[in-house]
């Protein structure tokens, strides 16, 4: 790990449109990406709803920010941990989530998946391995 680089985890536990948490989290991630830290995102509980496919907010008059998750790779945010149990509890599978990829600069720009499905105990390990945890 380079000097001064810390591990930051943004924890997302809320559904996308009922409250402002999800959008605020995403904006903080995009702004924070300028600081060249080791950033990961965690999606658990209702947070997994943020990543579902086919969101269309036209008729509720708010911005659909789900496409913005696909831009995270450009910001070198390439680790999106999604909790399997949270998906299961909500009747979702990995196939219900949109595809999010990044281009690996160190591997001839090969396109790789950003979403990493983890168990609850693996998620606990991810959390325990961080320097800073920001909750939304």
């Amino acid at each position: 790990m380079e000097d001064g680089v810390k591990k930051f985890l943004y924890v997302n536990r809320k559904a996308p449109y009922g409250t402002i948490y999800a959008l605020e989290a995403l904006e903080v991630v995009l702004i924070g990406a300028a600081f060249d830290q080791d950033v990961s995102l965690a999606f658990l509980d209702d947070g997994v709803f943020q990543l579902t496919k086919a969101q269309d907010t036209k008729e509720i008059g708010v911005k659909n920010f789900s496409p913005t998750f696909r831009a995270l790779g450009d910001y070198e945010v390439t680790k999106l941990y999604v909790e399997k149990e949270s998906l299961d509890e909500r009747g979702l599978t990995a196939d219900d989530l949109q595809e999010i990829t990044y281009e690996d600069e160190d591997d001839d720009w090969a396109e790789k998946p950003s979403i990493i499905i983890v168990s609850r105990s693996e998620m606990a390990d991810v959390m325990a391995g961080q320097d800073v945890i920001l909750s939304f």
Partner: peptide, 18 residues
């Protein structure tokens, strides 16, 4: 095009890289 696809205007370093 970037905005159409991702619903954000990219940060300047992302723009230049792209």
């Amino acid at each position: 095009d970037y905005y159409e696809e991702y619903q954000i205007a990219p940060a300047v370093r992302v723009l230049i890289k792209s």
